[in-house]
Write a protein that binds this DNA or RNA. Structure first.
Length: 200
DNA sequence: CCCTGATTCGC
DNA sequence: GCGAATCAGG
């Protein structure tokens, strides 16, 4: 693979978006994160700030510095449906084309509508007693990771109420190829037949 | 251990 | 110019 204009463009865009070198490498394919980093440096954009020819040493004013532990729990992750892995290849989905009226900025404190959906609190009557016990046990040992701390190898099972401080992700080692740890995989993935049988 | 970016240096 | 190896750090 070589650095075609197109690939370089993707590299620039993603780097500017704050994507990590490894993520960019995956996206591009055929290159390692080292290659990406190397290129980034050669292109002289190691400093993620500058867009074009920059010099503006924008005095990074780190003002307010929102309280670390305050309204933190208000993240866009509330949906019941488990966190998906990387979007991978949206292919023909120019999802990026945001309505020119919204600021593309980082994207953090999304406003949590009003009373929002609670995490996948599986209705107990549909889970096997063993799995349930196991889950409760495990949740005591949850690593309580924040959204940003999740990786492909951490359990992404949400615990608690996203609208409060009492919210985090399990974070225990996930099953290879699965988004959850063993215990959570147990309650997340159930054969249809099993569910049906358990019903009544 | 997983992951980050930074640097070096032979090719 | 390229990127593996290595370094430094979280």
């Amino acid at each position: 693979m070589s650095w075609t204009d197109e690939r370089v463009e993707t590299l620039k865009r993603m780097w500017q978006e704050g994507q990590s070198a490894s993520q960019i490498a995956k996206e591009l394919g055929g290159v390692t994160r080292n290659a990406v980093i190397g290129k980034v440096h050669r292109l002289g954009l190691s400093n993620r700030a500058g867009g074009k020819d920059e010099e503006e040493a924008a005095p990074v004013a780190t003002p307010p510095k929102a309280e670390a532990a305050a309204p933190k729990a208000a993240d866009p992750v509330a949906r019941p449906e488990p966190v998906r892995a990387a979007p991978e290849r949206p292919a023909a989905a120019p999802a990026a084309a945001a309505p020119s009226n919204v600021t593309p900025i980082p994207l953090r404190k999304a406003i949590v509508p009003a009373g929002q959906p609670l995490p996948p609190q599986p209705s107990t009557n549909e889970i096997s007693p063993e799995a349930l016990a196991s889950v409760r046990e495990v949740e005591k040992r949850a690593k309580k990771l924040s959204l940003m701390e999740l990786t492909e190898r951490t359990c992404k099972w949400p615990i608690g109420d996203p609208a409060t401080e009492e919210f985090w992700f399990c974070g225990l080692p996930s099953q290879p190829g699965k988004p959850y740890c063993e215990a959570h995989v147990g309650v997340a993935f159930q054969p249809m037949s099993a569910r049906r049988d358990r019903r009544r």
